[in-house]
Nucleic acid binder design. Structure first.
Lengths: 197, 197
DNA sequence: GAAGATACGGACCCGTGGTCCGCTTTGCAA
DNA sequence: TTGCAAAGCGGACCACGGGTCCGTATCTTC
């Protein structure tokens, strides 16, 4: 197969769009305030380009999200403990959730925009499936741990973007306090497994 | 003060709208498919009427939700155990969450529409505040239970409409299985309190 | 340099929430 | 019963955001 290469200006524009969108989200705008037209303008590009490159709004959001997520994904899949695969499950689970929480804290608007995206629940997103599968498999490495699938969902629900926003927004709960709360909570859930290490 | 009463046709229309909206949500439509114009038509009423009565889409949703919630609220505030106020905390917490779960299962589209409503996070809604406050206060009746506020949020997050939909949708997880999962999970969280009863 | 493929971009379309204002209905009072 | 405000009605209308389209500009290849 001829392996079509994309034109140089095309990829350049893609990056410009990504960067512009990133900046807009970072820049204090409320998520729904970031309109496609605004992104296009900020990137110095026409709307058509933007839609051709990413399909639709959700596509753009997803692309941004994945890009931001890349380092963490790397750390989880092949990094050192406690995030990496060599960590014992009881340490790795809290580490995973802490990583997710921090990510959402650092990318509040973006996560918010993605999870609130009208079309399709956030649970169908590829990255959610990944996190859930990972968390579930780690939970199930704990001998005798019940309901790994449901528990994984329940724990991830704790880091929902709008909840994080609600708590952290307007500085009501500082970052470290929130991480501590989550850690305590996760510990409590894990403590219920029969074979306490 | 003269205490303005609303005209008879006004209240009649209001009920017609509520009923129509209820029917539309019940009738298999996807939540965002239920448009304001559709509700108006189904109720045999003009859009203006609808907006005058409820302010905006969110207002209509809220009104419907509150109406549906009324019986449960009643049961929680002044009903018999295990839901009512005379139940011991360790029994009441699971009962509360089970009630929420069942409610969301029975009103999937409506809850979905309300929680996904673009403007304003679901955490600012009055009914959420109520549930959270209630759950929190019950949790804090358990001696030595840590982080009642956060835990209440975390537990409620487990019953988010879109998660429920994701799991229960298309019959993947049957109702009773889900209730059982949630019960197990809640028990695990409660078990972490120092003074095991 | 020419030709074909690829991408650009902004005018355009459509559906949705929300507003507005001339007309109808209702309730009260004479 | 009749008159008359005021409350309410309703659908044409508006704003605005996502998504499309196609004539034109740009890149790539020969």
């Amino acid at each position: 197969m001829p392996e079509r290469r994309s034109r140089r200006d095309a990829s350049r524009n893609q990056e410009a769009v990504l960067a512009a969108a990133d900046a807009l989200f970072a820049g204090g705008e409320s998520p729904e305030g970031v309109t496609m037209a605004a992104v296009a303008t900020a990137a110095g590009v026409g709307k058509g380009t933007l839609f051709r490159a990413f399909g639709d709004r959700a596509g753009l959001l997803r692309a941004l999200y994945e890009a931001r997520l890349e380092p963490i994904r790397e750390a989880v899949e092949s990094g050192p403990p406690p995030l990496g695969p060599t960590a014992p499950p009881r340490e790795r689970v809290p580490a995973l959730l802490d990583a997710v929480l921090c990510f959402k804290l650092d990318n509040r608007r973006l996560a918010l925009a993605l999870e609130a995206g009208g079309s399709g629940s956030p649970y169908r997103a590829e990255h959610y499936e990944r996190w859930h599968g990972m968390l579930r498999s780690v939970l199930e490495q704990i001998p005798g741990f019940p309901d790994g699938d449901f528990t994984a969902h329940a724990l991830l629900a704790t880091t929902r973007a709008d909840l994080v926003e609600h708590l952290a927004g307007e500085g009501r709960v500082p970052r470290e306090a929130m991480r501590a709360h989550l850690a305590t909570y996760v510990t409590a859930v894990l403590a219920s497994a029969p074979g306490r290490a």
